[in-house]
């Protein structure tokens, strides 16, 4: 049998051996069998020297071509087997639930407060705050509340057992005084904060609740400005489709005073024409006199409302106590 013939036989055997390898170790074994140092192909190359000089180039060329073919085949087979070997043992079930990184939720009162504050800030208001423990002066007297007003009663307001009989502020309006006492006009502030009333907890009351209040003092501030800002804030917070109306009312620290009602599709759905949402008015000249602003020079307005009420309206929450129980099933809905 000629070398050429044997080459052909060995090549055919090698091809079938390599192609038939079932896994990577089998492939490597087959490779050794033919292309390894002791392999049959290697042995064939060694025989070249035994050939006649003129036969050598031709035979060498044939052997090289066969070897390159086998090596290419080997590389290809190896890639295929490696790919097979790296397949996952079990197929992923893409329908099984994903592993979630738990994300916490912000309290609904926080979400609503931040939205309201954002609306005010867009209009150029700065956040302000003051203490929750207040004195009667800042909570009542400076706000022109008569000395016999029921709000000043131990029936309605929490007093603290400490000399000086401080109290828990009953509204954020005390911050108006705090700010005006220390800062010269013009002033534009929004005051979110906790307030306290001595009400037993029920579906619509909690001794602790939140208010937010805007105050604007400058030269030439008008009732028209008040209306414009109130409309802008509530449209921002409750949606563009709301309607507002201003009803004359009475508060000791504003004059004229108004209550604000709003309506939208939701209010209609509740079977009502209007829902009361806020109180407002032009700052009473007496309040300005108290903080030594000249009411002939400065004018201003304030408006305030309850944050729980907005949150209850926005989310359809019917019991205020839910806000303070922090049931995670409640918190996780926002």
């Amino acid at each position: 049998m000629s070398l050429q013939d044997r080459l052909s036989t060995i090549r055919d055997a090698a091809v079938s051996e390599l192609m038939g390898a079932l896994d990577l170790p089998a492939l490597e074994r087959s490779k050794g069998l033919f292309l390894g140092p002791e392999g049959r192909f290697t042995a064939l190359i060694k025989e070249l020297s035994a050939l006649a000089r003129e036969e050598r180039p031709l035979a060498g060329k044939a052997i090289n071509a066969a070897k390159q073919e086998l090596e290419a085949l080997l590389a290809e087979k190896r890639a295929t087997l490696e790919r097979t070997a790296s397949l996952p043992k079990e197929a992923a079930d893409f329908t099984a639930p994903g592993r979630r990184r738990p994300l916490g939720r912000l309290h609904p009162l926080t979400l609503v407060t931040e939205d309201i504050v954002r609306a005010f800030r867009r209009l150029g208001f700065a956040v302000a705050d003051g203490p929750e423990i207040e004195d009667e002066y800042h909570c009542f007297d400076a706000l022109n509340t008569p000395s016999d007003h029921p709000a000043r009663d131990a029936q309605d307001t929490f007093f603290i057992e400490t000399p000086g009989r401080p109290l828990l502020r009953t509204h954020t309006s005390s911050v108006q005084i705090r700010v005006m006492e220390t800062m010269p006009p013009p002033i534009r502030i929004v005051v979110p904060g906790r307030v306290f009333r001595r009400d037993n907890a029920d579906a619509t009351h909690n001794p602790t609740f939140h208010q937010i209040e805007g105050l604007y003092v400058d030269k030439g501030v008008t009732l028209g400005d008040l209306k414009g800002t109130v409309e802008a804030v509530f449209k921002d917070v409750l949606g563009d489709d709301i309607k507002l109306r201003f009803r004359p009312h009475y508060f000791s620290y504003t004059e004229p005073s108004m209550e604000i009602d709003f309506t939208n599709a939701l209010v209609k759905k509740l079977g009502k024409d209007w829902l009361e949402i806020a109180g407002c008015g032009m700052v009473h000249p007496k309040v300005f006199e108290t903080v030594a602003y000249d009411p002939e020079v400065w004018s201003g307005w304030a408006f305030g409302f309850g944050i729980e009420r907005i949150a209850m309206l926005r989310y359809g929450i019917t019991d205020i106590r839910l806000f303070y129980e922090n049931d995670t099933r409640f918190l996780r809905q926002f």
Binding site: V127, T222, K227, G228, A232
Partner: peptide, 15 residues
């Protein structure tokens, strides 16, 4: 009473 557009920012506060 017509509503008027809101005016610009005024002052700040530590809060």
């Amino acid at each position: 009473i017509p509503s008027t557009q809101s005016r610009r920012a005024q002052g700040s506060h530590p809060a």
